[in-house]
Nucleic acid binder design. Structure first.
Lengths: 178, 178
DNA sequence: CGGGTCATACATACTCGGCATACATACTGA
DNA sequence: TCAGTATGTATGCCGAGTATGTATGACCCG
């Protein structure tokens, strides 16, 4: 979804062809999201199929094909932007399943898992701090805001790991699901 | 990934057939992850193709086909469990792209977006609190731990929204990426 | 100067995994 | 007999990655 509407949002400004869309998108994300070029083109094709976007003129320079937003595209973009991400929080990330399995498998080494995961989060925190600093240095206030959100997430994860580590783990806890 | 290894983890305990895998998996997640039945079967087929799982005996009762872990499956599962989720934090969620676009599109109504999103997070918070309570009532300590993590995430999101809302948004900030 | 090589801009095709819908079929209990 | 549940297959979309192809311009070397 984010890529699809990210592309729409970029095309709102001015018509672009695929390759340029990729560059703008990655620039907008400040290098935190490297998009596969193939995906850009399939995304554009789907957008065209759904009538949100349409090709402009004939193929130019070297096969370049520019796209522009259709009126429906404008509408879809505005709606998406106006709508908050709601719905229940998805628990689909690996860490959740790992915790559950480590709990119910006999020698799951839950404490080790937590310790390793905590280290990974600390590393992530360092990376994000560097990234935020760079964004500010580059005057990318918008990007720094994103990184700030990611930082808060990772801090939450760390806090979580700490809480869990300080629990006493009983032997026969939880795992009754039959 | 989580589904694939979740299935492996369930099969570590005892051989199961697809339908039963689905039930156990959803029970393990306490209803927070409804898996599509088709996906279970394709996952099992891929696991079999990759030699991590193998069918047991002939088809039983009503076409039931049980699977058990192969030695390679055991190894793969243990490795996955031992490995923390590392790598950089992905900024692929809708909210990030929405923020960027709302910033750079002229009348992006950033403040409105933040307010709406905050309301959505508050709702999520309520749902998670109910869920945690239920998990504890059911003696599902393992599940309550997960929900606790999700709660911390959502709290972080709220904090983020508050920070952003109290910023003063300049007109010509950020959006220089050419 | 001319030709080879290399990078870059630009695009397509193919593949795989996640995920959902829809369908088929057997059993089971009211 | 009918509803529901148990169990499975087929099909298709979307996200994402790999591989390939073709121009064009730059750069180097004899």
């Amino acid at each position: 979804m984010s890529l699809k509407f990210g592309v729409l949002g970029l095309l709102k400004g001015e018509p672009l062809h695929g390759y340029e869309v990729k560059n703008r998108f990655e620039a907008m994300l400040g290098g935190t999201w490297e998009v596969n070029i193939g995906q850009i083109y399939t995304t554009l094709q789907r957008l065209e199929r759904d009538g949100l976007v349409r090709p402009i003129g004939r193929r130019g320079d070297r096969g370049k094909l520019q796209y522009e937003l259709s009126p429906e595209g404008h509408k879809a973009l505005d709606q998406w932007l106006a709508q908050p991400d709601s719905g229940p929080q998805q628990l689909h990330e690996d860490i959740y399943v790992k915790l559950l399995l480590a709990t119910r498998i006999a020698n799951g080494d839950l404490k080790g898992l937590l310790a390793r995961q905590k280290r990974a989060y600390l590393q992530r925190l360092r990376d994000l701090n560097r990234l935020e600093e760079r964004a500010r240095r580059d005057g990318r206030v918008d990007l720094a805001r994103l990184v700030r959100g990611a930082l808060l997430h990772t801090e939450a994860d760390l806090k979580w790991m700490d809480e869990l580590s300080s629990e006493r783990f009983g032997a026969e806890e939880g795992a009754r699901t039959e």
